[in-house]
């Protein structure tokens, strides 16, 4: 591929990933309302379009039309910067996720991944660790006690769970032997899903993903019974929309990462027996990945509308006294098993 063709192809891919991310996040809001309604034996939104399918559009119009309020005592630059950073870091992670294997058209290979970084996992982890800035800056610059408390809760929660998440990833890196997301996805061909090799690491990773996205039962930062609205108390209009939307994008990306790390990514067992054309297989792979992602998004919502919120001391105890020792234990067990079955050589 020439450089120009490569740039055009990558540009199209970036735009496609961006558009799909926004679309999925938009319809996640609709799905959340419908699932909440289903779990609570209600009907849910049904006025905008058939089955309320246009509800996200109506919400977006409402968000844009609302009056823009910036508190006079707040720090204006940082107040606007907060939701922008939240949105930016949420959109950055889609770059390293392998959305499919690769298409071969006229002898040219088109990989369905924007870039295969040598250190893909570390990039992902770095962007996740930056995600806390949006909430902290937003919470502090509002100049409101509830916002500040929400921001501080969010940051301490995210720092605490990042440790356990990193340790769970280390055990995964030990068994896969690579930091590249593409290779991790390719290694899980057939039934070789990492969830069976690393069951404990998988569980820890999923719990930490809930905490990192601030979803229930870890939604302490926006706990409305104690903190009014948490870190976004003072926000209105589309800036509030950005904070809420960033949460849904994070949920989508977390689901994609969980599917890629532990549940085979774009691989589907036994499909190689029925389909032999590699291009059709690649496109089916994308479909399978999105099916897995949809399941995990549903799982996120299912948990949210089933479990009550943790108390703050319970949250900290779970993070530091249960998950971190468990993930260290997981690393030790992984090391022993790898040593004794000789896979280290």
């Amino acid at each position: 591929m020439t450089l120009t063709a490569l740039l055009i192809y990558k540009g199209i891919l970036v735009l496609a990933v961006f558009a799909i991310t926004l679309l999925v996040a938009t319809y996640s809001t609709y799905a959340e309302r419908k699932i909440a309604a289903f779990l609570q034996d209600r009907i849910g939104p049904d006025r905008a379009g058939p089955f309320g399918i246009l509800q996200p559009l109506a919400d977006a119009v409402k968000m844009f039309m609302k009056e823009e309020m910036i508190p006079s005592v707040s720090n204006k630059t940082l107040f606007i910067l907060g939701p922008s950073i939240a949105m930016l870091t949420a959109c950055l992670t889609g770059v390293v996720i392998p959305w499919g294997s690769s298409l071969t058209i006229n002898g040219t290979v088109y990989p369905l991944q924007i870039t295969d970084l040598n250190i893909g996992i570390l990039y992902l982890f770095g962007v996740i660790s930056l995600g806390v800035y949006g909430i902290m800056i937003g919470g502090w610059s509002s100049n409101n006690k509830y916002s500040l408390l929400g921001g501080i809760r969010a940051s301490s929660q995210m720092i605490s769970y990042e440790v356990a998440m990193g340790l769970a990833i280390i055990a995964l890196v030990m068994t896969t032997g690579t930091l590249s997301m593409k290779e991790i996805a390719a290694q899980q061909h057939g039934w070789h899903w990492n969830a069976f090799i690393q069951p404990l690491g998988c569980l820890i990773f999923i719990i930490c993903a809930f905490a990192e996205t601030n979803r229930a039962p870890f939604d302490l930062p926006e706990c409305e019974t104690e903190l009014v609205g948490g870190y976004h108390t003072e926000y209105s209009s589309m800036k509030l929309g950005f904070f809420l939307f960033a949460e849904y994008i994070n949920m989508f990306i977390s689901s994609a990462v969980i599917s890629t790390f532990y549940f085979g990514g774009y691989n589907m067992p036994f499909i190689g027996r029925f389909v032999h054309d590699p291009n059709v297989l690649a496109i089916l792979g994308v479909v399978f990945l999105f099916m897995k992602i949809s399941f995990f998004i549903f799982f996120f919502m299912w948990v949210r509308w089933t479990l009550p919120r943790f108390r703050y001391d319970q949250l900290m105890r779970l993070g530091w006294q249960i998950l971190i020792p468990l993930s260290i234990l997981n690393i030790v067990i992984t090391g022993f098993v790898m040593y004794f079955n000789g896979s280290l050589n």
């Binding site: 770095g126 660790s129 902290m136 940051s155 990042e162």
Partner: peptide, 8 residues
């Protein structure tokens, strides 16, 4: 990601 968040 970690140290400056603690500073903040």
């Amino acid at each position: 990601g970690a140290i400056m968040v603690l500073f903040l």
